[in-house]
Amino acid sequence: MLTPARIPYLLLLPATLFLCAFFLYPFVLVAIEAFTRDGTFTAQNFQTALGHWKFPAAMTNTLLLAAVVVPIQTALALLMAVLVTKMTSGRDMALYVFTIPLGISDLAAGIIWLAIFEQSGFLNSMLYHLGIIDQPGTWLGYQSKGVIFAAVVLAEVWRATAIMLVILVAGMGLIPKEYDEAAEVFGASPWKRFIRVTLPLLRPSLQTALILRVILAFEVFAVVAALGGTSLPVLMGETYHWQFALQDRGVAAAFAIVILAISIAATLVIMRALRVPKEARI
């Protein structure tokens, strides 16, 4: 019988079943896959994965990329959000343009920045037009890892700042104007108001934005593939490589578990660092 008490469960049932079947269960499968080989429990997959000569580079690159990209994005997203809220005209247009990259896939972003950095690309063309170089140089060659890294950072910042911006602008919209005005009346400068009032009140949104972004940063894959091929190994790329080129699902699963582990660790750290007590929320 359809009693009111049962309605919510009926409504939740399909989504719950789906998430159990295609989210929880597969993760159990990955874990099993990672810890077994030919049906027996073993750490061999991890030994292979972690012992592979590319693993330290992949791990360092992934973490370093996140460590460089996310702070830049946070600052840039905050700047954009503040500018947008202060704008009197053209606000909607600016917001639309700023959020365009939200709809762009990482692969497309990689290709876009490839158009700039490739040998006959726009960067070299510009330098040539300006008379700085005579011959197009190779930017993304396998020996210039630093440039590839920088290009990936640029592409990631370009592409994925928008998601943080959206969350932060939405969060700022929830903060009543009176707080800022009160601080102004009490003599706080615009900078002080931002640091002492807006930023602390924005903490819940900042937390969400950071968690989302850090995890996505650990999943960086297509941008790197487009710009650096295999010259700049990252964890997700290695996972893909083991699954396909090397056809070793066990090791691929071990990589997956490593990514999962650093994702969860990062989430916990951010949640702790930016925790807002329930009673201190708006």
């Binding site: 989210f23 597969p26 993760f27 990955v30 968690i211 650990f218 894959f221 997700m236 969860i264 989430t267």
Partner: peptide
């Protein structure tokens, strides 16, 4: 949100 879903 805390899980890298494409790994699924």
């Amino acid at each position: 949100r805390a899980f890298p879903l494409p790994l699924l």
